[in-house]
């Protein structure tokens, strides 16, 4: 046949989407910009990050509550750092139960690249980004609380 090897080429697909957010999540993001963490009252307790609607009843969630930016690791998995990840060295993706809330917050935990320092139940706190814009990356990651 006339066929040689298959040609291939690198491609990039990119869409600069922007999403609208409701009042609860919008306030949550605005809070992050001010280094403040908010949750919303729901039937199961305070949920953080907040939701616009109660996951149990479907009703609008209640008032926003300011929370201490610290919590406990509920579960985690180890990840190799790639370009664009929140931590520049290997880190954990974790579910962090913020103090005083029901449920958990999915974010990165930086333990200096050493997975043996990760434990379920360990205390962590928010590491705020210096240059905050009002989105989830204003939380750079969680770090071990002293």
């Amino acid at each position: 046949m006339t066929e040689g090897a298959s040609l291939s080429a690198p491609y990039t697909l990119e869409f600069p989407f922007e999403r609208t957010v409701g009042p609860k999540i919008g306030t949550f993001f605005a809070g992050l910009k001010e280094r403040r963490l908010f949750g919303a009252r729901a039937e199961r307790g305070v949920v953080c990050p907040p939701l616009e609607f109660d996951p149990d009843t479907g009703a609008e969630t209640g008032e926003l509550v300011e929370l201490a930016p610290a919590g406990t690791v509920a579960t985690w998995t180890w990840a190799r750092s790639r370009a664009g990840d929140p931590v520049a060295r290997d880190f954990a993706w974790a579910l962090v139960a913020i103090d005083g809330t029901a449920g958990s917050f999915f974010h990165a935990v930086d333990v200096g690249g050493d997975p043996s320092r990760m434990q379920v139940g360990m205390r962590v706190r928010v590491r705020w980004r210096g240059d905050r814009v009002g989105d989830l990356r204003d939380i750079e990651c969680f770090e071990v609380a002293p």
Partner: peptide, 29 residues
């Protein structure tokens, strides 16, 4: 009652995918 910040109305939600297009031997002809 805490003083609430003014809510934001949008969030950036960019999508980006880097991939390799493989034409296949037929399409390469």
């Amino acid at each position: 009652a805490p003083t609430l910040p003014e809510p934001l109305t949008t969030m950036a939600s960019p999508f980006r995918m880097d991939y390799t297009y493989v034409a296949g031997t037929g399409r390469s002809v």
